[in-house]
Design a protein around this nucleic acid. Structure first.
Lengths: 181, 181
DNA sequence: AATGAAATCGACCAGCA
DNA sequence: TGCTGGTCGATTTCATT
């Protein structure tokens, strides 16, 4: 269950790459901004409006486009403090998954990663003030199996975007579909 | 026009909260799924289609909704390895910002945080294979001013969503607008 | 996989509470 | 300021190639 690739390659079918350059351009565009009209996209990519629509639909059906979401400004809700917490747990195997779920359920927690090495989980959270930060860390510590935590306060979010495609190098773009690991 | 708060309410203004319960519900919905039709949203929130449209437009104009984006599946592009890298830098102040920019520009890097404490940057990256992972870490090390790095391989992404609103506790929801830190 | 026509949906406006 | 109802234009869908 916890194989190296096991959890990353699960259920929702790892869609093998089958993209031409137009697809990558299109996906890069909509990843960055889904408000663009079909016409704009059609012009930029030199395709007909219908073709754009057809491709988008296909990518949705195949799960390449998982969803379309509004991106909200956390500051608009007073969420101006961010913390990165390293969590180590007591190694009674089997509990890891449950602890991960518990961590994910803590209010204010935004990201949870299970990692190899001495630190077991990396938890990224967002809160409004110091009181909430203390409460959040207390809640994490109180989870059964959590051994030790150490937190770093984020002073500046330099990059937070999830732009999968524009983050890729040329090499990565070339490597789509090929499995050379 | 420019009252007591005038200067605080300017242009790029961290938008002070001014949300009723309907706003929060609406924003929670569109943050989770922007594909819902105005009609669906109108039904769920007991408002007219026009009212939903009106509110969404307002939130956009105020920057509460920063953008609308397609969320892509990284696995569809073979990006099935994730690394969290702690980067410490030589403390010649003033360089930090430039180093942050350089880190952000490295292909494959998804998130960069500048933190307090002994570790200076936390960098989260996504690559397709071990070769790319090594290349990426080499590139980070080669950045001028970077002192030391230590990386953790991510075995499982338990939570990666940026659902600002659904991640908030009741206390946080109540705390919108009030500044009690 | 792409097209064009027909049905559906969202954007905008003037007016109103 | 927030909302309504109606109109117009854009988008989605579908039958065809």
């Amino acid at each position: 269950m916890f194989g190296i690739n096991g959890l990353l390659m699960d259920s929702s079918a790892p869609n093998e790459g089958d993209f031409d350059e137009k697809d990558l351009q299109l996906l890069e565009h909509v990843e960055d901004d889904f408000d663009k009209s079909l016409e704009e996209l059609a012009d930029e990519l030199d395709l007909s409006k219908s073709a754009i629509h057809y491709r988008l639909k296909k990518h949705r059906e195949r799960g390449v486009i998982k969803s379309v979401n509004a991106t909200l400004d956390p500051l608009a809700f007073g969420l101006n403090m961010m913390v990165i917490t390293n969590v180590s747990v007591t190694h009674e195997r089997g509990y890891a998954e449950e602890i991960g779920e518990r961590l994910s359920a803590v209010k204010g927690v935004e990201q949870v990663y299970y990692t190899m090495g001495d630190v077991d989980f990396v938890v990224i959270s967002r809160v409004q003030n110091r009181t909430q930060m203390n409460d959040l860390i207390d809640e994490i510590i109180s989870i059964d199996g959590v051994n030790e935590t150490s937190s770093q306060f984020v002073m500046n979010e330099l990059k937070t975007d999830r732009k999968v495609i524009s983050n890729m190098s040329e090499q990565m773009r070339a490597g789509i579909g090929s499995r050379t690991d």
